[in-house]
Amino acid sequence: MAEQVALSRTQVCGILREELFQGDAFHQSDTHIFIIMGASGDLAKKKIYPTIWWLFRDGLLPENTFIVGYARSRLTVADIRKQSEPFFKATPEEKLKLEDFFARNSYVAGQYDDAASYQRLNSHMNALHLGSQANRLFYLALPPTVYEAVTKNIHESCMSQIGWNRIIVEKPFGRDLQSSDRLSNHISSLFREDQIYRIDHYLGKEMVQNLMVLRFANRIFGPIWNRDNIACVILTFKEPFGTEGRGGYFDEFGIIRDVMQNHLLQMLCLVAMEKPASTNSDDVRDEKVKVLKCISEVQANNVVLGQYVGNPDGEGEATKGYLDDPTVPRGSTTATFAAVVLYVENERWDGVPFILRCGKALNERKAEVRLQFHDVAGDIFHQQCKRNELVIRVQPNEAVYTKMMTKKPGMFFNPEESELDLTYGNRYKNVKLPDAYERLILDVFCGSQMHFVRSDELREAWRIFTPLLHQIELEKPKPIPYIYGSRGPTEADELMKRVGFQYEGTYKWVNP
């Protein structure tokens, strides 16, 4: 592979701008107003304001973009700056750019259920340069409990009458099928589907988006991507930290609602779906819905739930269990780990287990898709061969690698495990991989909904998990304890083995 010439960040961002501006969906010269509902909250200060700053800094926003914060707290732009700027990672050389960014910011205080507050917000936006005809993007960085009041008031008082209007809704989209349907029906009564952007930030990850290209742009994968060759698929999300004093919020939802029903299920769809007619948003989402419709409700015998306990040999936070978090209700049975087996009941995947695993306070930070292939028929190497695996590593250190057998150097035919490896950090030294939120917010500006969740996708996802969630809430089974920093409950490994996964433990990928 030829040595790549190092590029400056300015040059890299210039390439990104060229890609972005050559499309006809990006209205570079139009006025846009980006409204952050819930501007005083954690999500706004840690993710949304920093993301908008990065896009502005790199010249990736339309030229005439204004940012308006809205929340109940009586704040000023200076207050917003004070709480969000520490997350910007701005350099001293960017000081003038930073001043320009905050000059485009404003803030309006108001209630979430008060019509007069929204009329005041609308008047404020109209007073901005060309504000009355601007395109408006409303980001709901809010708890779902206020979605209905907020969307109703936005629709009645704050819509642009000339430009387009788009609304970005953060997960969780309800707690179960019934609450999700209620919320979807409410929002759909106010906005068209092409105006609604239900954001799952995992769909903005580079390697998640790469799944489609790997599958449908490489001839070698087509013939082997089926039940005849693939023994099982494992989708993993692991965090090495616990709730760390923020367990009160987590306890309301648990690990299945927080990660599995959305992030992991979306990745499953991209692995299992048929080739779409095109890369058009609805063509892709149509195929994802077909996959979900082929999955039956989760069966309790295919589920393992766990909850982390303190590690007596650990240090600091590792010595504390979930129930030691003062914000967690006493005696909570909320799971911090889950392993679930699903089956896609169609011709391509009949009988292939899709194993979804996620948890907190585990032994490493990792998100990946792992396809394990069947054993080689007619073994001539005296059971020395391990199964081939194709691994798409989402985070950290984005990579695609194939675990395969090669001859060990020497005189004899002794096979050993090795890999074919594409590590993004080595291959793409001159490429700026956008943060997931950067990519998705740019998608909203461009009107691309491919990486957002459609209402029928959402409904099918909740259909699969709601009976299990209701059973857990009714019966309150005690989750299996696992030690902070471990791989999780051993019962999860036993479940995976029972459905056909072979864990060798003899080879570990190392970032080159």
Rank of each mutant, 00 (worst) to 15 (best):
R192V: 12
E99D: 15
L96P: 15
K95S: 11
P62D: 05
Y147V: 02
I48M: 06
E19S: 15
F221Y: 15
Q22I: 15
I154M: 09
I67C: 08
L128V: 11
A116K: 14
A134H: 15
L140R: 01
I162C: 10
G14H: 15
L214A: 08
D228R: 07
D114F: 09
I234G: 07
I224G: 07
I255T: 05
M207W: 04
G110Q: 02
H129L: 14
L235M: 15
G23C: 10
G204M: 02
L140A: 09
W53F: 06
P50G: 05
F34T: 07
K95G: 13
L137H: 02
R246H: 02
G248W: 01
H201Y: 01
K46D: 02
I167C: 14
C232I: 02
G247N: 05
F138A: 03
I15H: 09
E148F: 08
A103H: 15
F191A: 02
F138Y: 12
P62R: 06
F250T: 02
E94R: 01
V68K: 03
S132V: 11
R81L: 14
K89T: 08
I33Y: 12
I162A: 12
R81G: 05
F26R: 12
P144W: 03
K47G: 00
G247C: 07
A44S: 07
S180H: 06
M159G: 08
N126T: 14
K82P: 06
D228L: 08
D194I: 07
T91R: 14
S160V: 10
Y70L: 13
T145M: 07
S180D: 01
K205P: 02
E156W: 11
I15M: 14
C158T: 14
P144F: 02
Q195H: 08
D114M: 10
C158E: 05
P62Q: 05
K45Y: 06
Y70F: 10
H155R: 15
K171G: 02
Q11N: 15
W54Q: 11
A90Q: 08
A25V: 15
R9D: 15
E85M: 12
S189R: 13
S157K: 15
D100A: 12
Q119N: 15
L140M: 14
G222M: 11
N122R: 14
G222N: 13
G59S: 08
E170F: 01
S117V: 09
A25L: 07
E252D: 09
S106Y: 14
R192S: 10
G245K: 09
Q178V: 13
S73H: 05
Y107D: 03
Y249Q: 03
A103N: 14
R166C: 00
K89Y: 08
I15Y: 08
K238N: 00
G245C: 10
D194E: 13
K82Q: 09
T10K: 15
V146Y: 02
Y118W: 13
Y197I: 02
A116Q: 12
F102I: 06
A141T: 06
H155D: 12
I187F: 08
F102D: 03
P86L: 10
I224W: 04
R120C: 14
K152L: 14
I80C: 06
D114V: 13
Y107P: 02
A141F: 00
G69R: 02
P143T: 04
K47F: 04
T236P: 02
R175H: 13
R120F: 13
L16P: 15
Q209T: 09
I187L: 11
Y197M: 00
V12E: 09
F216V: 03
I154C: 12
Q28V: 09
L20P: 14
F250N: 01
R166P: 01
F138K: 03
L61F: 08
L142G: 00
H186A: 13
A149H: 13
A71N: 03
P172F: 03
F102N: 04
G245V: 01
S84Y: 13
N165I: 10
W225K: 00
D181T: 11
F237K: 04
F21W: 12
F66C: 08
E252P: 12
G222S: 15
P92G: 11
L55Y: 05
K152Y: 11
T145H: 06
P240H: 10
I167N: 03
